[in-house]
Structure formats: C-alpha cells, structure tokens
Design a protein around this nucleic acid. Structure first.
Length: 906
RNA sequence: GCCGGGAUGGCGGAAUUGGUAGACGCAGCGGACUCAAAAUCCGCCGCCAGCGAUGGUGUGGGGGUUCGAGUCCCCCUCCCGGCACCA
C-alpha cells in the first residue's frame, strides 16, 4: 500500500471492484428492512455541474450511512431526457435532439461513476426511450377513459414571426428570444389532467408527511389555496348591456359586499368581448392586454390598467348600478375571470380606484379602531365620488391616538376583518356573522351563496414541441378524439427529424401524423403535440422498482420498494414537480398499481448552488450568456467583482445576478477539473463540508485545499499507526480486566464516543454533514496531540481510527475502503456496521460552569458533577472577578442553569 | 405583485430546547525545518481602547419580551427560490 495518499491510484481500483462485484445491486429478497434512497434524476444537459455533485453526494452519504445501519438499500439513477434544451441545441448546432441527448447521457454517466456513487446501475432508465414512455401513453389512455383527462383551450405565448409557441423562459421583456418579435397571447386547444379532482387529498395528505420540510408543505398548501368564500351574481343591467344574465364573481370577503363600487373583468371575459363590439377604443385596449407574455409574474408586475366598458350590473342586495371595467390585473384563468371591487378594503382595488377616480366606500371598521365620531357615521352612508371626496369616515385607534382615513393613502389595517357599518341591516356584525347573513341572503335571492374554491388549476399537459412523449390520440373527422388502442402503443417519436425552431417538426411530418382511425378505418390525423416533461418525472421513481417489466407499467416489486424512504432534490422543485409526483402517485394507486398514498416518506430539499452570471445584450434584446470558465474577472479593492471580460476576445461582458446554476444562464461550474485534480473523495468531502445541505451555496473553490489536506493527514496518520505494528482496538465490550486509562486517554475516549453519538445524529435526524465532518476533524486533531505511544494508548488510537473510518466512509468511501484492510487485516469495510456508543466513556466527574453577573460573562468555576445549589452559589460568589463586579452589593437573585451557567442578578 | 426562505469575523460556516457567540475549515500573520522553495509541523487571528492586566463593543437595520436573545415577537432593508411552457 502507498505511503502517500494518491486518490488517482486508489479510486479507479475501488470503483472497478464495486462494478465487478455488483456491490450495489439489490433485489427484493432480504431479511433487512428496505431503504429506498432517491435523488432527483438529472436533465442530461451535457456536463455535471456542482448542483448535481451536491445532490448526488447527499444521496450517496445517506445511502451508505443506512447500509452501515443495517438497511437493505436501493439507490437508482436515470435521465430526465426529454425537454427544450435538446431542441435549442438542435437549432444552434444542427445536431438531432436524440443524438445530442444520448451523447450527453454517456458522458454524464461516466462523470457520475467517477464520483463513486453507490448506485444500482442495472436499474438505469431514460425517459426518451419507448420502453419507458409507452407506459406513460398507456396511463394517459386509461385516465382519458376515466374522464381524468379532457380537452379545453388555453392561452400560450405566440411568436408571430417564427409561428411557434414559446415557453415563458423564451419570452424576454415581451419579445421572442430568437425572433425578437413582440409576443402575443393566443388561445389553442390542449389536453388537461384533472388534478383539481385530487385537490382535497393533495392538501390533507400534507398533514401526514411529518418528515417533509415545513416550508415545502406551506408552499404546497398556499399553491393549492383552499379558500372559503361566496359566489356572488350581479344581474346584468339590461338597459346598458342589452342582454339578460348575471355576472358571476367569487370573493373571500362577502362581508365587504356593501362596499362594492365597481366590478372588473379580465380582457378575455365574454362581457368584455360583448362591450368591445360597440366600442372601438375598448377593443383596442383589449387587444393591448393580449400582447405580452402569459406568465403570472409578468402579468402581476405590470402597471395596472383598465377601461370603462360603459356597461352596468346591479348590486344583488341594494340594487345599485355598478360600472363594469376591464382590468389587466384580473386573470381569466382564475375563479370566474371577474372580481367585485371593494377599493376601501382591498389594496389592489384601492390603487386602481385612485388611478381612475372610482368611488371608495368604507364599510368595515378594523379591529383596533372605532369611528372618530357618531356624526360621521350618518354622513358616511353616501358614496364618495372619487378620491377628492373620501375624507370620511375617519377612524380613531382604540389603543392609540392615531386617526386615519382613506385620504391618507392605503393603510394595511383597511384590509383586516372588523365590524361592519354603512351596510344597512348588517351594521355591527363581525366577519363570521356577516359572512353567514350575507350568503344566506344571496341564497334567498338565488344570486349566489357559500362556495369553497381552490387556487389550484388543472394541469395543461400539451406542448407544441418535438422532443417529448407523443400524446396517444388520433383525430378523426367522424369519430372525434380517438385513443390509440393498447396494442398499437407505443406511439414512437421519430428520431431523424430536422428542428428549425419554426413550428413543430411533427406537425410537418406526414409520415408521423398521417394515419387511419382505429374506430372507423378512415383517414385520420395523429395528435402532434407532445406531453409536458413534468409527466415523465412524475412517475420515474416507481419505474425504477420495475425497471425491466415489459408487460405492465409497474409490477409487484414496486409494492416492495415504495414509498421512497428518502428523496433528495433542489428546493426549486418544492411545488410543481413534487405536487405532480404526489398527484401521479394517487393516480397510479387508484389504477391498482400501488398500495401506499404518498410517494416520498422523507424529503430533503437541497439549497441551490448559485454562481454569478455573465452576458452580453444585443440591440434587438437578445442575450448571450457566458460560462464563468470563459470569463476573466477583475476585483475592486474590497475583493468584489468589478468588471469582467471574455477571455476569447478581451471585450467586456455584463455581470448579472447570482443565480442557480443552469443551462439557460450558462453559469454552471464543471466539477471535472476538481475531480481530476483532487479525486472524488475530496470533491465529495469539500461539497459536504461547505454548508449544510438545505442552505443555498454560492460556489467558490476556496477551501478545497483544506479538504484535501485533511484526507492526506488522516491517511498519513493511519499509515504511521499501521507501520508501528498491528494492535487490536481497545474494547469496552471485553468486560472488566482493563488497566485503568490515564486522564488524556479517558478524555480522548469521551470525545470519541461523544462524536459517535453526535455524528450518528448529524447523519440521521439533522442531516447536517458539515458538522459531522468537523467532529471527525477534531478527533484527528486530538489524535495528533496525543503524546503517548504505549500499547494501551495505541489500542485506544486503534479504537478511534476504526470508528473514524466507518463514520467518514459515507462521505469519503474510497479512502476509507482502501485504508480499512490495512488497519484491520483480513477484514473489509463493507462488512462493518456503525460503531456502538460506550455510555460509561461519556461520564464526567467535574463540570465547568460559566459565571455571569447581570448576564455578562465574568468567570468560570469547576464543580463536582453532584454539587448542590448552595455549593455552586458559594463557589460562584467567591470568584475574584465576580467579587470585583459585585462591588459589595447583595445579589437580588441567582439563576443556575444545570451543567451550564450561573447568573448573578444585582 | 403574490408565496416560501436567507443575512453571524477578511471568507465558508458552528452555536441542536432562550444559557460561554465565532467550533471546524479557508485566507492572513509569526515561528520551526530547508542552501532555497514547496510540502509538513507549532503558535496567533471579530472590532475598538490599552504595553499589559483588563474594559467596552459585536450576529443586516430599528424597536420589544426576558435575569439572559444569533435564537422569541413587531416593523424595515437587501439577497435567493417559485409563480403553472426551464428542469
């Protein structure tokens, strides 16, 4: 064995042995409890980036730790192989998406293997292969039969120059990323999955996931957005509208109904379309609203604009005529596409009313306020006509002297629940009473009533793209939408196409779309849309269990392995991917394929690895993004990046935000250099040491030397110990007969067994690997300081080194595997289990207590473990620095925190 | 805009249940070894004042609760993620 630590020599040998001996292959026959450890599979973008290294190292650490704990561990890997970047690469470099994807997979698989992950590679899958996606198509047909998939139209980003639908990501400042054309919203037909049918279960299921991060559950709850409110119908004013009917709105604040001063509808609302027929200016405004991207973030941040339709509706309770406005902040996709506006009690409505001089009518007195005087109560019954006239009513704080009214701009308390006034028979009611009374009254008039609403919308899965799973539908002029029969599946995606970026290649390939109707046999047209790639990633975790099953989507093995015991992936997937996967799990369960209700028992959401971005912007709005590797940075005097130039041409580039490493921003850092230079163990150790897994991490390779130095120090210390001759570890389980240990050896053993306890907790409950590593480093520092070469001391060192190698092996498996047989001849690390804690080694006879005076640290005392309160107080008061700070005063109180500190209060 | 997070020395981070702020590591400084350098080993290292003993101050900013706050509460600033067609 080498005296020098040489990862380049040992790592490939050990990896080859794992591969030859199928060390990590698992089946379903084991007496040990199963542990399914899964990391989110990667998109094969071309190269691994640091986010991948972090994700897969965390997964591997947990997998290896659980093997040491006696679990039967399955850790698979695969490829989320469909998606937009393959088409982008095809447009840019002329390579077919399939070839590009398979090349990337081959390269990234090698990179993953070089990291030494304990993966069962026989289960590898790629979602772009027909033997994977055929089952997705099969499930689609089953769900379609059940009515869980249906067709309706949806708004998309339309590029009028390239005649193509763009992803939100491809719309930059309202323009197409390639053409630079102004983007329009356009309505096209799509297939939808009825996720709302499972909204209630997806919500309540979160309460049964105790090992999911609270923040993820909160985000999903808010996303599903269950709310209790009222549907309110505003009858049409037939004089202005010329039609009979009602305008439906949904509100969570029926208590403010008497404060409604106008209603606002989305630009796509039928009433808006109706009004625009007589109103060219309005038609122009609606057209303007149709420009720009469909992304909610864009819609919600644009300036609030609106226009009066000239139409009126009737207030359902007091009969007043209310103007109908078209507003760009009302979303057609949410609720009824129309809102009742209560400017006095809703911030957005208030802002809109201010801008367009609409009435503000306060009807709620917030909890901490009362009306400033009785007389104002009567005056306030009038509608305030525009902002100038809303000086009343004024509110007076109950617990403060603050007087506020609506002329001073928006106050957040206006949106709070409170007591109704200026609301006729409802005056004086609180929120709950008013809610019931008003909704009952609406029911009586058949103009609405209580309703529970979800924010969650059905999932549109059609994509007008090539590189995805074909939707198994045939459109027949006579039979309508016909499912592709099971025996004709899979509908295979042709791999030899030319991608231009203008329109879908499938819609231009008669070889693909020309077919006959399975029902009537006449000529028909195959659906050319493909599925959202989130569909593939919603069920891959289950397919790993039945990876080679050719007769069904899943088999009995899935029931053995599922649910996934530990799922690890980026926090950016907190909502969409994790919600869709939970949804699919329930769909597969209801199809009889699975027994459990949730796919992932425990979830670790890894923080993102972020890095600076560099780009150049062109006059037409297009941007080129450059990799950090192509950039030369110069720093200012404080060491912050000041300017950047492209190495290739020496000309400046703009420094952008620090963002998650991604293909689209081109700011990923390739870990290959790190692995080539220092080895996989150092790369893994450094990644785990840099920060706890859940925290986001700005990439920097400063400190990687330190990780390497530690492994080398450990190697050398072991080698020196081994060369001095073989000893057996000091074992507390041998029973009595031990020579008593010296104080330094006792201290060392106390530190060791405290560390075993702490590191076990760090790996399992806390999942903080940085602190586990720090503890092992501290142990090595202590071993270095130990100046005792007696046999007894060498036995204690042997005990410590064995435990340290086992405890470090999940993080640096190659080094530990290589050293183990040297340290313990005729034995292998693979057959070891987690070290056992010697409780007697943890005992301490004396304890150090910190002494504070008025909460400030003034000294410390050493006390016997069993010291009583009076002894501690006496000892603390006798401390010289305490006497000094008491300066003769009598303490008022002495607080003792057992085993920690004494606080003397003056 | 809405939802969810985050902010601690020059840097990454630690402090697990309200109880010694800065573990562990990086960088830096000083020393040993060396012809020299690298590597290695030993020591110092929040900021201010002081020769020192020591004292003051300090966890993004402002307020509060408490004997005691990085940790709990209220307000604010900046940064990161998500917002349904990036994955």
């Amino acid at each position: 064995m080498h005296t020098q630590y040489s990862p380049q020599n040992i790592e490939p040998v050990i990896q080859q042995r794992w591969e030859d001996q199928h060390t990590f292959h698992v089946d379903e026959n084991s007496s040990q409890p199963k542990y399914y450890c899964l990391s989110m599979f990667p998109y094969p973008s071309g190269k691994l980036h640091m986010g991948h290294v972090r994700n897969y190292t965390i997964g591997d650490v947990l997998a290896r730790f659980h093997r040491l704990q006696g679990f039967h561990v399955m850790q698979p890997m695969g490829w989320d192989a469909f998606g937009l970047p393959a088409e982008n690469a095809a447009i840019k470099h002329g390579v077919p998406p399939a070839a590009w994807t398979y090349d990337n997979i081959a390269h990234m698989r090698n990179q993953l293997k070089r990291l030494g992950l304990s993966i069962d590679w026989q289960r590898e899958l790629a979602t772009c292969k027909p033997d994977y996606y055929r089952w997705e198509q099969w499930l689609f047909t089953e769900l379609f039969k059940k009515g869980l998939i249906y067709r309706k139209s949806a708004m998309v980003n339309w590029d009028p120059v390239d005649h193509t639908v763009l992803a939100n990501e491809q719309v930059i400042d309202g323009r197409g990323w390639r053409s630079g054309a102004l983007i329009e919203k356009r309505e096209i037909p799509m297939y939808y999955m009825r996720i709302t049918a499972y909204a209630e279960e997806l919500l309540s299921g979160l309460d049964h996931l105790p090992h999911w991060p609270e923040q993820v559950k909160t985000m999903q709850r808010n996303w599903i957005g269950k709310s209790h409110g009222c549907e309110v119908h505003f009858p049409y004013d037939s004089d202005s509208i010329g039609l009979e009917g009602v305008l439906k709105v949904y509100t969570t604040r029926p208590d403010t109904l008497m404060g409604v001063t106008y209603v606002a509808v989305a630009a796509g609302h039928p009433l808006a379309t109706h009004a625009a027929q007589q109103h060219p200016q309005l038609a122009e405004f609606i057209a303007a609203c149709q420009r720009g991207s469909v992304a909610e973030a864009d819609v919600a941040t644009q300036a609030k604009l609106g226009m009066d339709t000239g139409l009126f509706v009737i207030h359902p309770l007091n009969g007043e005529k209310l103007p109908v406005w078209v507003a760009n902040y009302v979303l057609m996709a949410y609720g009824e596409g129309a809102v009742m506006a209560v400017p006095a009690h809703d911030e957005r409505d208030f802002e809109f009313a201010q801008k367009y001089k609409l009435c503000v009518k306060p009807v709620i007195i917030p909890g901490d306020y009362q009306l400033a005087s009785e007389s104002l109560l009567n005056d306030s019954n009038a509608l305030f006509d525009g902002l100038e006239n809303i000086s009343r009513p004024a509110l007076h704080g109950i617990n403060s002297n603050q007087v506020i009214d609506w002329t001073h701009g928006w106050q957040s308390c206006f949106a709070e629940r409170g007591t109704l006034f200026a609301s006729g028979v409802y005056d004086g009611m609180n929120f709950d009473t008013a809610f019931d009374a008003i909704s009952n009254e609406l029911v009586v008039h058949q103009l609405g009533g209580k309703r529970t609403q979800f924010r969650l919308r059905d999932w549109g899965i059609s994509r007008q793209r090539y590189w995805g799973c074909p939707i198994p539908i045939i459109h027949c002029e006579y039979c309508g939408d016909v499912l592709v029969p099971a025996q004709d599946l899979p509908v295979i995606l042709p791999e030899d196409v030319v991608v231009t970026g203008a329109g879908s290649p499938l819609a231009q390939s008669p070889d693909f779309y020309a077919c006959t109707c399975p029902n009537c046999g006449r000529d028909a047209r195959r659906e050319t849309d493909t599925m959202d790639t989130f569909v593939e990633s919603s069920w891959y975790y289950a397919r790993y269990a039945s990876h080679d099953c050719g007769t069904a989507m899943l088999d009995e093995r899935a029931k053995y392995w599922l649910p996934v015991d530990q799922y690890i992936g980026g926090i950016e997937h907190a909502i969409l991917h994790l919600l869709y996967a939970r949804f699919f799990h329930k769909l597969m369960r209801d199809q009889g394929l699975l027994h459990c209700d949730e796919p992932f028992s425990r979830l670790l959401t890894q923080g993102m690895v972020i890095a600076p971005t560099f780009h150049r912007e062109y006059p037409d709005g297009k941007k080129d993004w450059y990799s950090p590797a192509e950039i030369e940075l110069s720093n200012d005097e404080r060491g912050r990046p000041a300017s950047a130039v492209l190495k290739a041409d020496g000309a400046p580039v703009s420094i952008g935000n620090i963002e998650k490493m991604s293909k689209s921003r081109n700011n990923g850092v390739d870990p290959q250099t790190l692995i080539d230079q220092y080895g996989a163990d150092t790369a893994r150790l450094f990644m785990m040491f840099a920060a706890p897994p859940e925290q986001s991490l700005e990439w920097s390779d400063a400190g990687v030397e330190g990780a390497y130095r530690f492994l080398r120090r450990l190697w050398h210390f072991c080698m020196e110990h081994i060369h001095a001759g073989t000893v057996t570890a000091w074992s507390f389980q041998d029973g009595a007969a031990h020579t008593p240990l010296s104080e330094p050896l006792k201290t060392l053993r106390r530190q060791l067994h405290n560390a075993i306890k702490k590191i076990g907790d760090d790996y399992s409950r806390r999942q903080t690997f940085n602190t586990a590593i720090a503890s092992i480093m501290e142990l090595l520092n202590s071993l270095h300081r130990l100046d005792d070469h007696s046999l007894l001391a060498r036995q204690v060192v042997q005990e410590a080194l064995e435990a340290m190698l086992i405890m470090l092996s999940p993080i640096a498996p190659h080094l530990c595997t290589a050293l183990w047989p040297e340290l313990c001849p005729d034995s292998s690390l693979e057959s070891q289990c987690w070290p056992i804690i010697d409780e007697t080694a943890l005992q301490q006879d004396t304890l150090k207590l910190m002494v504070q005076v008025n909460g400030k640290l003034r000294g410390e005392i050493c006390m016997d473990r069993n010291a009583v309160q009076a002894d501690i107080e006496r000892e603390a008061l006798a401390e010289p620095s305490v006497i000094k700070h008491l300066s003769g005063q009598q303490p008022k109180k002495i607080i003792i925190v057992p085993g920690r500190l004494v606080n003397i209060v003056l």
